[in-house]
Every structure is written in structure tokens, then in C-alpha cells.
Design a protein around this nucleic acid. Sequence first.
DNA 1: GAGTGGTCTAGACCACCCC
DNA 2: GGGTGGTCTAGACCACTCC
Lengths: 263, 263
Amino acid sequence: MLNSLDPQAIRKDIPVPLHYQLSELLNQQIEAGRWRVGEKIPTEEELCALFGLSRTTVRKALDTLVNAGYLTRQKSRGTFVAEKLVEGLVNRAAGFYDDMARQGIRVVSRVLEKRVTQPPDKIARELQLGPGQAVIALDRLRFIRDEPIMLVSCYLPYELCPSLLEEDLTGGLYQLLRQKYGLNIVRARRFLEAVAANDYEAQMLRVKPGAPLMLIESTSYLDDGRPFEYFKARHRGDRTRFIIENYVYGSGEATGVLATSPL
Amino acid sequence: MLNSLDPQAIRKDIPVPLHYQLSELLNQQIEAGRWRVGEKIPTEEELCALFGLSRTTVRKALDTLVNAGYLTRQKSRGTFVAEKLVEGLVNRAAGFYDDMARQGIRVVSRVLEKRVTQPPDKIARELQLGPGQAVIALDRLRFIRDEPIMLVSCYLPYELCPSLLEEDLTGGLYQLLRQKYGLNIVRARRFLEAVAANDYEAQMLRVKPGAPLMLIESTSYLDDGRPFEYFKARHRGDRTRFIIENYVYGSGEATGVLATSPL
DNA sequence: GAGTGGTCTAGACCACCCC
DNA sequence: GGGTGGTCTAGACCACTCC
């Protein structure tokens, strides 16, 4: 394990892209602390020689890690382990539950209502549903340390997960969808807005009417481009904040991530 | 202009990377509506032949546009123009002014206060300043259509832009910094929180005390990793919302962007 | 002047989609 | 079976950093 940049680790006899194997391997080594933050990793040439790969392949593996924020490149100097981003911030598009779980925080959900129904027009449009196509509607109140934190109404096309309502919905929805239905959410568009709590929201979240809430409206998409989930969540303003990292790399592309952090 | 995928457009005699020239060219054509959303663009091979480039170079150009969200690739089928992201959402890490300008909205700033001063401890830590290193402090109230929208206090290391306070600060700060000082912000970490307006904020933003505001705390970094700007902004909750796109691509990387949208 | 990442070429084989 | 993107190789030249 001490020196596990083992040439054998890259297997050319399995149908897994070499560049992917290499980036996974390097990623593990970085996470395991093989190099300190700011430390130089082997040069591209060294990696080529070590693993018997062409430079193109090695560069593709490094590209992946650079884009993901694990490494930075400095022309003529080398490739270095990047400063750690905010904990649990890389690899996003996850749900609230996963976000909190990564920070060691347990979220419990109380299901307020669940039903199969005809969607309101707005929801049907967001989910690109035709007339007659039903949705699963799910209202939940979510708690951290027995304190209500967030109120969320979500809608999913009935066809895609018809038996969802029979599942245990007190945990994370995204995990469930991935594991039981093989549905992978790969893209989400979210709107964030500061609003005042109305009477119902105030009562459920145990704040005063008019207290600031973070309203999040979100539509998520599957890997084939189909919209899959629409939700509207209200977070207590005094209990959550959101973190965004933006960075520009290469020739003008911008990337960033959104994570949730409890206060 | 009708058929301006002109081979001449890629110039091999100038010191600009070919893949970059090609991605810029294609980007322009996409923006100009040369292909409809969902339409197939020429194959990689065709682009190679048309511009006299190797496939590696063509692919690098396409990679850029795929990562930026302009194109999607479908194995064995082709490369297609992606569904438009929210207007002006690609290419982020810009300032509020640029964000609005891209949407055709003019932002005017009133400078409330500007001075060179010793930073409070928190700011000094964020900007990684040693004792004795001064900052420029700048308080602005920003307007859209003569309505106050946002109140912002920002801090910059004095050393990096000593004559900034003599400039016209009623426009966009990021533009100014880029153009006059060659300072390029490439990374930012931002915290978003819903808070209630205090009396001062309420008065300046012309809302009632207690009204919901979006509080944004941000630290920006230059391309060499140095922290460069810290700000704390309060946006009227009833006048702004924030858009985030997250997406996962390739082997698990996640990217996203944050943009501002007026209500 | 050696080291290193940035760029580029020419050519190859594969898996998968669609006809 | 042809078209197309995904992967990979081997080799090259450059600009820049650091000694």
C-alpha cells in the first residue's frame, strides 16, 4: 500500500477504459493522502513509462481529475494536488439526504402526504408529460436532530417508478431511485430565492410567519435527457446555507458545485 | 455568413491553439443558430477533413463545448446541439454586473463608501493578509431600473490594485480589474443564506425590516491561487433569484454554474 | 540546457446504432 | 454493413520554468 502506484493496477485485459482506470487509481491515491496538498505528482512522462500507456491516455486521465478539482496543472512545472474544496462538495447533483450524509448528519423524513395524481399544468410542463400521464406527489417534512429543517413537495412521473409509494420514504429519495429503479439523475436546474414564511410553512418549520426561508425549485433530468423530478423545497433560513464553488479552467469553461451546509 | 464553416477561419499561422479556434468558431455558429437545438452537427471526421485538422484536435474542441453544455454526444449517432441552458448561464464566475449585462440589464452602482483601511480579522484571514497589509473597502448600493436591488461591501488587497479608488466604480468591478490590472478571477466560493433585513438594510433597499434577503458571502481567487476579493452582498428577496445548473458528465465529475436572474 | 506541460499529427481498432 | 463516437498508440515540436 505504501507504494501502490503498481503498474499491475492498470489492467489491459478488461473492458474498462485505461484512462478511466488510471484516473480512478490516482483519485484513490490522492484521497488516501499519498501526496500532500500542493505536492507534485509524477510527470506525465513518468506515468506513461510506469503504466505503459501513451501520453494521450495519461493526459485524459489527468484531465478528468483536473476538471473534478483534484489536481491543478502548472505549465513547465508539473501537476499538483489541488487544495481541498469544501468537504463533500465535489461530485454533486446529489440530493439533500446524500449531501448531509456525507457530512455525517442524519436526516429523517416524515411523509406528510403521498399519492398518485394528475399533475397541475406547471408540473406537467416541467416534466414534459402529456395529458393523462400521472405523477407521484410526495410531501415531506425533514428533520435534523429532531428539528424541522425543510419542507419539500416533489413530483415524479408515475410511469418511471410506479411502486415507489410502497417503499420506505423516510431516507434519501435519490439513493432509492438509483438502487431500486436504476434511475440516474445527471443534471438539475435549481432556482434559489429568499422568501418569507407563510402561516402553514411557519407552523411546520416552527418559525414565525414572515421568517426568511430559502425557496428552492428544482427540475432534475435523467441521463437520456428526460426530466424526471420536480420539487419545491423550503429551507429554514436560520438553519441552512448553501455553498457554491465556481471555477474557470482551460479556455473559458466554468464549472461549479452546490452543496448544503447546516448552521 | 450562410455557410461560414469556412476552412479559412482556422488560421494555422497565428499562435492561437487550433482546438481553441475551432471551439470558438463552432460556438459562434451555435449561438448564431446555424443548427437548431437537437440538430446534428458535422461528424468529427467531416470536421477533420473540412479544416484539415487531426481528430485529436477536433475532439478537444468538441470536448470544450460539451463540457460547457453547448453540445451533447451520442455514441454511434453523432454530436448534437444541446438544449439551451438558462440564458447567460454558461461561462460563469463573473460578477453581478456582467451577469446582468449578459441579459441586457443595466446595473448602476452608487458608491456609499470607499477607503483604504486595516481589515477586520475575519477579512484578513479570508484574504490571507499579514499584519500591516491594508485593504480597499468599498460599499456600494446597486440599482436596476432606478430601484435598489443589492447592497454590497467588498474588500480587496490594497497592494494588488492600489489606484482602484480613483477609477469609475459605478459599473462592473470585475471588468475593471481584468482590463486595468490584468487580474483574472478564476475561482470563487460563495455561501448563500436567507436572512431577514435589519433596519439599515431595509432602509437602503426600500423594504420593510424583517423582509427576506439573500445574503451572499464570497471569496474569489486569482489564477495563481491567491485570494483576491471578499464580499458580503444582500439581495432583495423579492427581486432576485439565483439559478444553478448541476450536471454530471463522463466518469463522475460534476459541474455547475450559478447565475443571477432578476424578478 | 534539461524538465515539463500544451499542442498536434496520422493512423488504428472497437462497440454500438441504424439501415 | 456503413457510419460514428470512444479509445489508444507513437511520435513530434513548442514555450516556459528552473537550475
